[in-house]
């Protein structure tokens, strides 16, 4: 980890040297660009750090820098359902379909998201859970007045699962311009291609933003098993049956009584 941080820091400085002269530039780096899921995977955390690079010509502005770092997972379609009583039994009744919502969304920031910038800016860049664009599919039997309930329930359940999170005051400034933050990735994190987005604000103005890739992958046996079950599903089924019969047979032989 220390080595990774050091490399990333060097990278930041190297990048800083090569930047063309703009007022403020944000550079950020992720501790590791690939998260590997193995059989003992119980979640991990990634460290993101970077630097605000000021052009020497920049006149020192008033106000402090505010930062938001977003880690966003691959898109998913998700159906949120609500139970209702039907013939005395609780069953799923109404539903709302969310299209292309992130499978994972974690944001950390220096201050409360709402204090960083205008709603319009936050909405545009989808910074903060309240500013996520959760598009619902056109056809829905849910009355307009109740749609917000589904949205709220969706966000609440995803937060319970640890897949959506918002933490304030979790970005730490090491010096006046260098920052660092950690984002925990839970054990149930979906695999896929992620984006790490960093935003630099000052006095409600978005000064700079940067984006980098993060890959979450199963590796080794886990990846092999998953691919096998998808690509050769018939053979996978046969293997499962063989394995089960063999285990049963073996137990019969070991514990043979008569």
């Amino acid at each position: 980890m220390i080595v990774r941080m050091a490399t990333a820091l060097i990278l930041c400085w190297a990048l800083a040297g090569s930047q063309p002269g703009r007022a403020e530039e944000l550079v950020a780096s992720v501790s590791s660009d690939t998260v590997s899921i193995q059989s003992n995977f119980t979640g991990t955390e990634i460290v993101i750090f970077g630097q605000v690079i000021r052009d020497t010509n920049t006149i020192g502005r008033r106000g402090t820098y505010e930062l938001a770092v977003v880690v966003q997972g691959p898109p998913q379609d998700i159906t949120a359902r609500r139970k209702g009583r039907f013939a005395g039994v609780w069953v799923n009744r109404d539903y709302e379909q969310f299209r292309d919502v992130p499978a994972f969304y974690a944001v950390t920031s220096t201050v409360r998201i709402g204090d960083m910038a205008d709603r319009v800016v936050l909405d545009e860049h989808e910074i903060g859970l309240n500013h996520l664009n959760l598009a619902v599919s056109g056809s829905s039997a849910v009355p307009l007045s109740e749609r917000d309930d589904f949205r709220e329930a969706f966000l609440r359940l995803r937060q319970q699962q640890g897949l959506y999170s918002e933490r304030h005051g979790a970005v730490e400034f090491l010096t006046e311009t260098m920052f660092r933050t950690t984002i925990p990735l839970p054990a149930n994190i979906p695999v896929g291609n992620y984006l790490v987005k960093s935003f630099l604000f000052q006095d409600g103005v978005l000064l700079s933003r940067t984006e980098s890739d993060l890959f979450v992958r199963k590796t080794g046996f886990e990846q092999f098993t998953f691919d096998f079950s998808r690509e050769y599903s018939f053979v996978y089924g046969i293997v499962a049956v063989m394995l089960a019969m063999f285990t049963g047979w073996l137990a019969g032989v070991i514990f043979k009584k008569d």
Partner: peptide, 20 residues
Amino acid sequence: DLLIVPDDLYSIAITMGAGA
């Protein structure tokens, strides 16, 4: 489980994309 009021009326299920 079927008869008492559930703790949470809402549930979500992934229909497409990662983990579906």
